[in-house]
Every structure is written in C-alpha cells, then in structure tokens.
C-alpha cells in the first residue's frame, strides 16, 4: 500500500528548503507512520529532488510527522527552472511512498 492510502501531506517552502507534513487520516496509525516513514526513507524516495539532509520532527499532539528537506534541487522559487518552482508537488510525490501496514490496516481508510 502507498502512504497515500493512510495519510495526507502538505508541502511548504522557504528558499531552497522544503517542508513536508504528513498526517494519518486515522490517528491510530500515527505509530505506523513513525515506524514506516523515517527520514532515511523520505530522503531515498525523494533523492531525485532533494540533495541535502532530511530532518524529521515528531509532533504527537498533532499526530504529525514534519520533514524539513534541505537543498531542494529545483528549489529557490525565484530562479528555478522547474515547472513547479515552489516544489509544491513534492507532497504528492511523498505520498507515493510504499508502506507496510503489517496486517494492522485493511484497504483504504481514507474518507472521513
């Protein structure tokens, strides 16, 4: 299953730093995200787009994982040659990350 089946994501940008916040639809799956969506996996998954470090912040109050991605390759907004100069579509790229639900989730849990 893909992260998209379990979570939603918002991208933000500050210069060539991208922020990606991931939230489970069902907050019982926060621990699953903690296990599956590590900074290392995010960095690997977005390697084509992020050259620098990926730092993960855990915000249990919000059931959120917040990734701060440094040196976004097409970043910088103002002088980027990319079509999406802000890197806003990185959120959807991250949601294509495969995750293992390890038997505790069946099917789409999405729509609230």
């Amino acid at each position: 299953m893909l992260l998209h089946d379990l979570a939603h994501c918002r991208a933000g940008d500050k210069g060539n730093v991208a922020t990606l916040s991931v939230f489970p639809y069902d907050e019982r799956f926060f621990s699953l995200l903690l296990r599956e969506v590590t900074a290392e996996r995010v960095r690997e998954h977005l390697a084509e787009f992020v050259a620098g470090a990926v730092v993960r912040h855990e915000l249990p109050n919000l059931a959120a994982l917040h990734f701060v991605c440094h040196q976004v390759i097409d970043g910088g907004v103002t002088t980027s040659l990319a079509l999406d100069t802000h890197g806003k579509s990185l959120s959807s790229r991250l949601l294509s990350l495969p995750v293992s639900a390890a038997g505790d989730v069946t099917g789409r849990t999405a729509t609230r």
């Binding site: 939603h8 918002r10 933000g12 940008d13 500050k14 730093v17 922020t19 916040s21 939230f23 639809y25 912040h57 915000l59 919000l62 059931a63 959120a64 917040h66 701060v68 609230r112």
Partner: peptide, 17 residues
C-alpha cells in the same frame, strides 16, 4: 474547517517547529 485542515496550515512553511 477541521482538525485536519488546521494541522496542515499549522506546520506550513515552518522549518523548525
């Protein structure tokens, strides 16, 4: 307007929570 939409905006563009 929900916990979900507010959470997204809360962390939007924040590089250090």
């Amino acid at each position: 307007l929900s916990r979900a939409t507010v959470r997204e905006q809360l962390l939007y563009e924040i590089t250090d929570p």
